[in-house]
Write a protein that binds this DNA or RNA. Sequence first.
RNA 1: GGCGCUAUCGUCUAAUGGUUAGGACAAGUGGUUUUCAUCCACUAAAUCGGGGUUCGAUUCCCCGUAGCGCUACCA
Length: 503
Amino acid sequence: MPKSNIRTRFAPSPTGFVHIGSLRTALFAFLFARHNSGSLVLRIEDTDQNRFVEGAVENLLKVMAHMGIDFDEGFYLDAQGKVQEKGSHGPYLQSQRLELYKKYALELVKNGSAYYCFCDEQRLEEVRKEQVALKKPPMYDRCCRKMLPQEIETKLAEFKAAGKTPVIRQAIPAEGQTIIHDLVYGDMNYDHRVLDDQVILKSDGFPTYHLAVVVDDHFMEISHVIRGEEWIPSTPKHILLYQAFGWAAPQFAHVPLILNPDKSKLSKRQGDVAVEDFLTKGYLKEALINFVAFLGWNPKTDQEIFSLEELVQQFDLKKINKSAAIFDLTKLEWLNSLYLRNKPHRELVALALPFWEQKGINPQTYSKDYLAAILELDFSRPTILSDLGERTKYFFAQPEYEKELLVWKKSDQKDAKDKLLKLHDFFFGLDDSKYEKTALETELKNFISENHFDNGSVLWPLRVCLTGLPASPGPFEITSTLFLGLGKEEILKRIKRGLDKLE
RNA sequence: GGCGCUAUCGUCUAAUGGUUAGGACAAGUGGUUUUCAUCCACUAAAUCGGGGUUCGAUUCCCCGUAGCGCUACCA
């Protein structure tokens, strides 16, 4: 596929799980790249050594691949499931780019856009305390920025002798302002006086986000930065860094936050935020993608159901809205049930296997046709797959239930027993060829009308002794399906069991 | 505290300088049905407040209010 010059990236930190917000940012970047025939780069921002989680990249790749999001550069999983790197702008792991950051931090020091800071944590803390007490915004007081060249030399030597490394801070211009031209939010103006002299190179030799993101986006030739709204306040610092380097800044598109139902920033604590959690609960990737895409974006039409391909076709940064969206599960559940209902049942079997196994059922011992048939008649019910095992367990084993359940609301125990007896005879005498669903329905309905029975008086007890449940799919389809999987004997056995209960 | 962003039914959102402010989910009611679900029909539900500009503002501007974000050698 011919590529345009549009290059965007997804740059998560390796926290070990994929946050719903991350998924949405990744999705938007992916959609934007694909819609414009651009490239999508995956970069891992592991500059905080304390945060690195083993296996995080592998997990991320797995989840993204499952969701249908793939990257042109960065990392991928090989046939053995091992993490591999690809692309001509690497390395794509920030911890492997340390020399680069250091080099460019020093370049800024040389041209006066950054400076060494020798202040220790204790002093910074005191300054901060004082400022807060005076109700002033807590910012670095730029103490080291005023140092003379000789002082700096002395301090540097002192630090070296003590085996310490000073940090490097960005020197924000004292005056003026920086305007962000955001593709989503429009123009935003920041006065330089409110910008802090941020640390850009830490004493452990790692860069902070601000330096790393600028250096990497520049050298990875990123044309569009798509990231969360929480980054807006530090964007002017990034723009200033680009200027200090003499580099052209990319375009910025900040996307609105996703909120908890209580309107705080979506976080763990308040329920699941990890994509993996939704997947293990049995949410379909299609539903998740569709749902997450509509958090902060919509096509400006009435269409609500979108495949990933359709999203790629219609995606437009201009259609992203500015206000944060609450992450409310009810619509996800609806979407999920919709996708579940529309999914080919044979395809669903593979997805359903683990949920049966959870219930102690071994689905492998049954035919695929039977499993598919079970899903087919269960399909109008579930919103997620996780309760599938519980709901369909009567297809695998005799159900347990109270005898009272056998009695239809408009009938009595004696009648129930009578009907079950007649049903037993009916099924006993029914030819195997008549167990097909529609044929069975015709036969049973004839049987009922010929005998002048009420539908309910017959169908209710039948349904109950087959399922043991107060609510289930219809009796014709259940009987027919049971016949397919467990045979006529099992049906007769369950009716007999109902009769025994009524003795 | 400072800076910034945001503001339409409960939720996701559409629309417009003049409309009965639209759709979807959820809710409620009714129909279909042996049960639940599905399906169908219907109902209720919103422009944060105050000022401007204008013949006319929900829409444009200002102020306020509220919510949120940022304010680390985290990202």
